[in-house]
Computed example of a mutant assay.
Amino acid sequence: MTEEIIIAGFGGQGVLSMGKILAYSGMMMGKEVSWMPSYGPEMRGGTANVTVIISDNRISSPVLHEFDTAILLNQQSVTKFESMVKPGGVLIYDGNGIVSHPTRKDISIYRVDASEEAVRSNMQKTFNMIVTGAYMKVKPIVHMADVLKGLKSSLPSRHHHLLPSNEKAIEKGMEIVVPVNVVSANCCVNCH
């Protein structure tokens, strides 16, 4: 098994830490992992993305041009990376601020309204964990116990008291992710 993931959005959305947590989770499961971040000089507010590979086998290169899964958190990321999902792959996106929704019919598309849920539930700091939960529901490659271990490994010990709220956010993401029918998604966009 090899899972090649791109996570992309604005700096400050927790894109890089989400990738790091998935990579740590893979390590906890005894997998080979790669975590390769990329971000503009602006950081917060600019675009950021991270490539994560989780594999049973050695990883020959962290540089990828197509992905099994794309987790896209802003319009620029949808525009740039939708075409890079392998046929049969998965695209998960947050609908906040998206005006041109994904349209491919050869991949599975899921929407998680994580921004809206984070604000509604007063969980803004765990937005990326809501998205992580959506990924875990759609592609159960990493397990909750390993994600929590990965989270604990990646967080400074002064933030370990936040682990229960992160677990709650992951569970919320698992609850609210929904498959998107491309035809109805476009209809909904045109109807509003």
Rank of each mutant, 00 (worst) to 15 (best):
K152N: 09
K149R: 13
L155W: 05
V78Q: 10
S77R: 08
A185G: 14
S61H: 09
V138W: 03
A134K: 11
Y24K: 10
N74M: 03
E116T: 13
I54S: 10
M18Q: 13
E167R: 13
P102R: 08
A134L: 14
Y135C: 00
V50Y: 02
E167P: 01
S34T: 06
L91Y: 01
M129A: 12
Q75L: 14
G30Y: 04
Q13S: 03
V119M: 08
V50H: 01
A185L: 09
V50P: 01
G26F: 06
L163W: 03
M18T: 11
H161K: 14
S184Q: 12
D56V: 08
I130S: 10
M18K: 06
P156A: 05
M84C: 06
V90R: 11
N49F: 05
E171M: 11
T79Y: 13
I170A: 01
S154Q: 06
T103E: 10
V138D: 07
F10N: 07
P164E: 07
F10E: 09
S38G: 11
L91H: 01
E116F: 15
Q75T: 11
V183I: 12
G46F: 03
E175A: 01
K31D: 02
G88D: 13
G19M: 07
V52T: 09
P62M: 04
D113M: 08
I6K: 09
Y135N: 04
A23M: 12
M28D: 10
V183F: 08
C187K: 11
I141F: 12
E82P: 03
M43W: 03
S55W: 02
Y93T: 05
M129E: 02
R158P: 00
H159N: 06
S77I: 06
C187D: 10
V63I: 11
V50S: 02
V112L: 13
S38D: 04
V50L: 02
V85G: 00
G26D: 06
G14F: 12
N190C: 09
A145R: 12
I107V: 15
G45L: 01
I53E: 03
N186P: 01
S153C: 06
W35I: 08
G150I: 04
T69Q: 00
E116G: 15
T132C: 15
L64Y: 02
K31Y: 13
H159I: 00
G133E: 06
F127V: 07
I54V: 11
N181T: 11
L72A: 08
I141N: 12
A118W: 07
E4D: 10
V147H: 14
R120Y: 12
M1P: 03
G26P: 12
I54C: 06
A185S: 14
V119I: 15
A145W: 00
H101Y: 14
I92S: 04
G12F: 02
M43P: 01
H101G: 10
G14E: 05
K172N: 04
F127K: 08
H192D: 05
S38I: 07
K137Y: 09
F81D: 01
H160A: 05
Y39P: 00
V138C: 08
T103W: 00
Y93A: 10
H161M: 00
T69W: 00
F81N: 05
S60H: 05
S25Q: 11
G95D: 10
T126Y: 13
T2G: 03
A70Y: 01
G89P: 06
P164C: 14
V90D: 03
M1Q: 08
E32I: 02
